[in-house]
C-alpha cells in the first residue's frame, strides 16, 4: 500500500515532461496495434468476409475436422507426457545435487535453441526409411515418420522445456525443508509428493501446462517435416491452414486460422488468471519469508 501511494505521488522533479510521456505511450500503443491487434483482427475479418455460412462450411469440412481432431489428439498425448517428464526433471534438478546437473539444464533448453525444422529432421534421420532405425522399423511394419507417432514425437520434443523451465526456479526457491518435515512425520514418497510438493507448485505447474498446450496445438515447423501432409490423415490444423492458403482458398484458410487464434486467446485468458493466482500465493510466501 505504501509503495503504491509513493508511486502516485512522485514529485514533479523526477517526472518526465508530459509530451514525452505521451510520445512514449503513444509509440508503444501504435506498435502493439500494428503488429498484434491488426493481424489478429484481420484473421477474423478475412475468415468472415464471405459471411457466416461459408465460414461454418469451411470448419465442418471433413479434412478440416480431421485436422482439428489430430491436433487435439497430438496435444492430448504430448501434454501428459511432458507433464510427467517436466515434473520429474524439475524435481531432480531442484531437490538433488548430482554430477552433470548443469548439462541436464542445458539439454532441457535445447528445444528452445534449435530450429523446429532441425528437430523434425532429426526424427526423419532416426526413424525415416533411410534413417538409422528405418530398416528395422520397416521390417516390423512400424510407421513413425509420415504418421501420427512422428507428429507426437516432434511435438513432445518441441514442448519439452515449457513445464520443466517453469518449475525449476519455483522448486529451487521453495527448498526441501517441507519435504523433509513430511518424511520425518512418516509420509511415504508418494504421500510427500501428493500432499506437500504438488500443492506447493500447482500454480506454476498449471502455467507451464497452459504454455505447453498452446505450443503443442500451434507447432508448425517440426510437425511439417515429419507429417507428410496427407490430407485427412496426418494434417494438423496449422498444416491444414497452410495447404488451404497455398490453394488460394483464403476464406477456409482464415476460418481454420481463426480457430487457432481463438484457442490462443483462451490460453491467454487462462494464463492471466493463473498468473494472478500464482502472484497471490507468491505474496503470501513472501510474507512468510519476511516474518522469518
Amino acid at each position: 500500500m505504501l509503495l503504491a501511494t509513493a508511486t502516485v505521488q512522485r514529485s514533479a522533479a523526477t517526472r518526465e515532461p508530459t509530451w514525452l510521456r505521451w510520445l512514449l505511450i503513444g509509440g508503444a500503443l501504435a506498435f502493439l496495434g500494428f503488429f498484434l491487434v491488426l493481424p489478429l483482427l484481420s484473421v477474423f475479418a478475412e475468415a468472415l468476409r464471405k459471411g457466416w455460412a461459408l465460414y461454418w462450411q469451411a470448419l465442418v469440412e471433413p479434412d478440416a475436422l480431421s485436422a482439428l481432431r489430430l491436433t487435439l489428439l497430438v496435444t492430448a498425448v504430448a501434454l501428459p507426457l511432458n507433464l510427467v517428464f517436466g515434473v520429474a526433471a524439475a524435481w531432480a534438478i531442484a531437490k538433488f545435487d548430482f554430477k552433470g546437473k548443469s548439462l541436464l539444464i542445458t539439454l532441457i533448453d535445447l528445444p528452445f535453441s534449435v530450429s523446429p525444422v532441425v528437430a523434425g529432421l532429426v526424427y526423419v534421420l532416426l526413424f525415416g526409411a533411410q534413417g538409422w532405425f528405418g530398416p528395422w522399423l520397416m521390417a516390423h511394419d512400424i510407421k513413425i515418420i509420415f504418421a501420427i507417432p512422428g507428429i507426437v514425437l516432434a511435438t513432445v520434443f518441441i514442448t519439452f522445456p515449457f513445464i520443466a523451465r517453469e518449475l525449476i526456479p519455483l522448486m529451487e526457491a521453495q527448498g526441501t525443508e517441507e519435504e523433509q518435515a513430511a518424511m520425518v512425520l512418516g509420509a511415504s514418497g508418494w504421500q510427500m509428493f501428493w500432499r506437500v510438493t504438488l500443492p506447493n507448485i500447482k500454480w506454476g505447474l498449471l502455467y507451464g501446462v497452459i504454455l505447453c498446450n498452446a505450443r503443442a496445438m500451434g507447432e508448425f515447423g517440426a510437425v511439417s517435416v515429419v507429417s507428410g501432409h496427407i490430407r485427412g490423415l496426418t494434417n494438423t490444423t496449422p498444416l491444414h491452414v497452410e495447404i488451404l492458403y497455398n490453394e488460394y482458398n483464403f476464406v477456409a484458410a482464415f476460418a481454420c486460422a481463426s480457430i487457432l487464434a481463438l484457442l490462443a486467446l483462451l490460453t491467454l485468458a487462462a494464463k492471466t488468471w493463473v498468473e494472478w493466482q500464482a502472484e497471490r500465493q507468491r505474496a503470501l510466501d513472501a510474507r512468510m519469508a519476511m516474518d522469518e
Binding site: E177, E178, Q180, A181, G186, R195, E292
Partner: peptide, 15 residues
C-alpha cells in the same frame, strides 16, 4: 520415516 522422531526445523517448515 521409521525412526519415530519429532524434528523441529529452524525455519519451522510448516506446510
Amino acid at each position: 520415516r521409521e525412526r519415530q522422531v519429532g524434528f523441529v526445523f529452524q525455519h519451522y517448515a510448516l506446510f
